[in-house]
């Protein structure tokens, strides 16, 4: 019996224009969420290293809760759960951005903490001894160095969050995976289409990797 399966290249390529419609949503949710997550991460990451316990504690709680629960549960909670509290619906894209923001924010808090703590104590002392205030010392001396050290870990987190958005097909956001599912529902070409979906994710993440590597190389000056 002949069971040879013919990979249908034509079907694969035919799906691409359709899949591409998902990319703006994938990018919007990933980068929108990561941008907010970065701000959250700076905020809680710095609270986390505060000498004052009552500032540290909320940061620890935030990080543990959002790092310790799955991003899928977080988005379901935001999309289906929160409207019950708020009394009105939340659109799926907003829910997706919020989920990436709070989830990546928890990880980025730890990245920020590690980056800042990795800077030698002498740097802070040198800044303070020159008469710079604590805020100035942080802004001009500590942060630029810490940020450079954070780039590889931030890149990692960016890639993870981009891939996490694929889960948001379940709340009906028209991102890459969702577009694939819809297309397959009428063409039954799952093998070809999911392969193309994977290739498109790879295209996004590779672009990011290369961009970060260039940024890193630029940042190496003087280190």
């Amino acid at each position: 019996m002949d069971v040879t399966f013919q990979f249908d290249w034509q079907a694969a390529f035919a799906s691409i224009p359709y899949l591409l419609k998902g990319i703006p949503y994938t990018l919007l949710i990933s980068f929108g969420g990561l941008a907010i997550g970065f701000l959250i991460g700076i905020f809680f990451g710095l609270l986390r290293i505060s000498p004052m316990r009552w500032l540290r504690w909320p940061a620890v709680a935030y990080i543990e809760v959002f790092r310790g629960t799955p991003v899928l549960v977080q988005v379901l909670f935001i999309y289906y759960g929160l409207p019950q509290l708020l009394g009105g619906p939340i659109d799926a894209i907003t829910a997706g951005i919020a989920a990436i923001a709070v989830n990546s924010g928890a990880y980025i808090s730890e990245i920020v903490r590690g980056g800042v703590q990795s800077i030698e104590r002498g740097q802070r002392e040198a800044g303070l001894s020159l008469g710079l205030s604590r805020v100035q010392t942080f802004r001009y001396v500590i942060w630029p160095q810490a940020f450079r050290r954070m780039i590889p870990a931030l890149g990692n987190q960016g890639i993870i969050s981009i891939k996490d958005t694929s889960l948001f097909a379940v709340i009906g956001v028209g991102e890459l995976v969702r577009q694939g599912q819809i297309y397959i529902a009428t063409t039954f070409t799952a093998l070809e289409v999911y392969l193309m979906v994977a290739v498109l994710y790879l295209a996004i993440t590779l672009t990011l990797s290369i961009g970060l590597r260039m940024l890193e190389r630029k940042g190496l000056v003087g280190q």
């Binding site: 002498g122 002392e125 303070l128 020159l130 008469g131 710079l132 001009y140 160095q145 280190q223």
Partner: peptide, 30 residues
């Protein structure tokens, strides 16, 4: 601190700034 200068055993120069920027940072900001 603005009136007392300090030189450290480990130099503690700011590695991300050029020599010139190391020297001009505090006068400009403080």
């Amino acid at each position: 601190r603005t009136e007392v200068g300090m030189v450290f055993q480990q130099f503690n120069l700011f590695p991300h700034l050029s020599v010139l920027d190391n020297v001009t940072l505090a006068p400009m900001k403080v």
